[in-house]
Design a protein around this nucleic acid. Sequence first.
DNA 1: TCATTCTGCGACACGTCTGTCGCATGAAGC
DNA 2: GCTTCATGCGACAGACGTGTCGCAGAATGA
Lengths: 186, 186
Amino acid sequence: MTTEQIERGARARTRQAVLDAAAAVWARDFSASLSAIAERAEVSRSTLHRYFTDRQALVDALLLDSLALLATLEDRVTAGASAMDTLEQHLRTGVEIGDRVIFLFSDPHRFTGNPHWAEDDGDDGMRALVDRARAEGTIAEELPTSWAIAVFYSLLYTAAEVSNQDLPRHVAADLAVQSFRRSMAH
Amino acid sequence: MTTEQIERGARARTRQAVLDAAAAVWARDFSASLSAIAERAEVSRSTLHRYFTDRQALVDALLLDSLALLATLEDRVTAGASAMDTLEQHLRTGVEIGDRVIFLFSDPHRFTGNPHWAEDDGDDGMRALVDRARAEGTIAEELPTSWAIAVFYSLLYTAAEVSNQDLPRHVAADLAVQSFRRSMAH
DNA sequence: TCATTCTGCGACACGTCTGTCGCATGAAGC
DNA sequence: GCTTCATGCGACAGACGTGTCGCAGAATGA
């Protein structure tokens, strides 16, 4: 296994390093240059281009990789007893991979038109969850669904940001969960 | 007065149009080009450059203008009976001039080093307010000040965003206020 | 050891953004 | 009517990001 990692690992590891660097850099500034990403990944710009022919290719790869990573983690989300419990697990999952989530969701129009981007897929799931939570009484009736979703991502985003500087990740996640539950309550 | 407005108004109005356009555009994408701003302001790029010699000059002018606008509005904030009331008024004020606030606060490092930017000025005021609110019992003891501030700006940002698309401004402000109070409560 | 693979470096052309011109036009004020 | 002012247009050079090369050195595996 170790040898196998080393064998295929050379390419796989470099590729992953570039993707991680892109997530970290683009999460904070999507207009950052490829040079900045190469530098962060500790590879030359040439090497970056060998793995991703152009900027769009890297964007697409990071989009796919982030969606896959998100899907993997979300598979572990056991459909909680309540919709709010499920929302909580989604929130915690999101904070865990903060940079990826920020990259995916910080700009609503970033991927419009991208074939790998299912425009309202996640949103539909969110709307359903929020509506269920409202029916179950954990989200106040008067709160618009769009507001609930906006606050959800807003707190997720904030927790991801804060966990890069101020507070430990799990603390930030706890705070986000608590704040979300209370902000939505009656 | 009318003539006077027209006299000095020609320049003043163009200048203001550019500043407003810059706030609107840069609030969503700070890497947007000066051409995009000129287009939004309905002036030529030449004219924009006549008022602001380079990009940095426009950034500085918008920074100063936004801070002044914010200060003007905040002067109307009557020191509320409670710290939370004061926070609420700041929140409502911020939502009113959403683009400016987003421009000022969306990226914490955008103005670091800028002579017009008092790094922690606003933050100090916020910390004091939050601490007072905690002492008054409207913010739970266990919530870190940094988290409370992060949520405050996060909700302000969200309300400003939402009020550009989904919901009327005052509704968004109401929702932000409600969500903030509840998320901070015991 | 030798061949293959991965990588870094420097160069190049191309496009976009930027900042600065000069010139022409149209409106406002004398 | 003439002057002044604000503006638009087009051109230009410089800076920067991008994508593609070829070549050389280092690491890996047979």
